[in-house]
Design a protein around this nucleic acid. Structure first.
Lengths: 215, 215
DNA sequence: GAGCTTACCTACTCGTGCGTAAGGTTACGC
DNA sequence: GCGTAACCTTACGCACGAGTAGGTAAGCTC
């Protein structure tokens, strides 16, 4: 019989990609600690020393996953949010890109959102990344207001941005567990919430506590 | 010198409380896997076999933490939400109780929100708990609408509840990192967002995509 | 087809941390 | 004041998994 080796020898770049894909899958279902390098190697169809040779230690591997998925997510969003469009349009495009990404990269999303947040060495960096996104959203809100001649204290803007991002994450997480849902529809639902809500809110309508006994 | 033993012998119930308190603290800063039973025992000022004797395995201990903190949180909220009050008032009281709880039990919150979600054996139970809360919120929204003579499809209600809960969690998480912030003020901010937003939204104002090129 | 490089593997070491066996100490009943 | 039961300890067994040493073979160059 001719040369049909069970396992072809592949160039490094291809293997690295396969390993990262496998690592994201395994990390997404096990978490950082519970995932073993053996299982990742197995999932990638390769042996453990190869993973160490190419991607380094377990922490470095997880960092690489976080970095790749985080970059992809960020690029998907900033690529969709064209700068000179009006606020509403940018928000809509950003949300749609976000939900589309989560729908298409559920594993990556799970690693970023469910697994990365608790693990000690990575939580900080991840929180910083999230905070950067929130600042961007807050900036969008601020510019949306400035264009309207209004003004809101930065602290309140930040809280609002936290609420908006948190709401989106929560709905995205729902999407990750409902493969049949349409990301664009969800983005529309979020606009229902964020735009109608934030829009009216920023237009000056503030909620005030009822006069009833406050304790 | 009289009898001043370095370590008094305490009744079981007291020790169990101390151990759970210590476990919540350690789990909150390390996560489930990275936390060691030795460190928990040390934090509780007791030796490891005592932890096993009273609380069982590490998984059982973590489950106990999750259960206690989750029950406390739930009780704080349902205790604040008096059934017969109007929708707005219940929402306000529920949010305020939630933020007050997080402000007063940062460690417990961290275990529930940051650590529990990713860890395999517990994620499911925790997700179920969260889902129960979301159902309650969805029910509140529904009753709020019904009282207003309106009607919304259950699926949309659920999405909205996810957004609301996610927004609250995100702001609560911000609170956990900002000890000086006032929980009641944050609850007010959330009402700004949720009430003004959801209120207008549920009153029939829906956002619709702009006519611009949709890709 | 000799010789080098790169891809790849089997089979180990060794640290860490869960869980436990076996024994010491304190308080309390009588 | 002594037995005994509950409390508490030190010191270990053992499994699991990160990381590695050392060896094999495929493909390339000439």
């Amino acid at each position: 019989m001719s040369t049909t080796p069970a396992f072809r020898r592949l160039p490094r770049a291809v293997r690295e990609r396969q390993m990262l894909d496998a690592a994201v899958r395994v990390f997404s279902r096990r978490g950082f600690h519970a995932a073993s390098m053996d299982e990742i190697a197995d999932e990638a169809g390769i042996s453990k020393p190869m993973v160490y040779a190419y991607l380094g230690s377990k922490e470095e591997l997880f960092t690489a996953c976080l970095h790749r998925e985080g970059t992809r997510l960020l690029e998907a969003i900033v690529g969709a949010v064209v700068p000179d469009l009006p606020f509403e349009e940018r928000l809509w495009r950003g949300l749609r890109a976000f939900f589309r990404f989560v729908g298409a990269h559920r594993d990556g999303w799970a690693v970023l959102y469910r697994q990365g947040r608790g693990e000690r060495p990575f939580a900080g960096e991840l929180a910083a990344m999230r905070h950067r996104i929130i600042e961007v959203v807050a900036g969008m809100l601020d510019r949306g207001l400035a264009a309207d001649g209004r003004e809101v204290r930065p602290a309140e803007l930040e809280i609002m941005a936290y609420a908006l991002v948190g709401a989106s994450e929560s709905v995205a997480d729902w999407l990750a567990d409902h493969p049949d849902a349409d990301p664009d529809v969800l983005a529309g639902r979020m606009m229902d919430f964020a735009w109608t809500g934030a829009g009216n809110l920023l237009a000056g309508r503030r909620w005030s506590p009822p006069p009833a006994p406050t304790d």
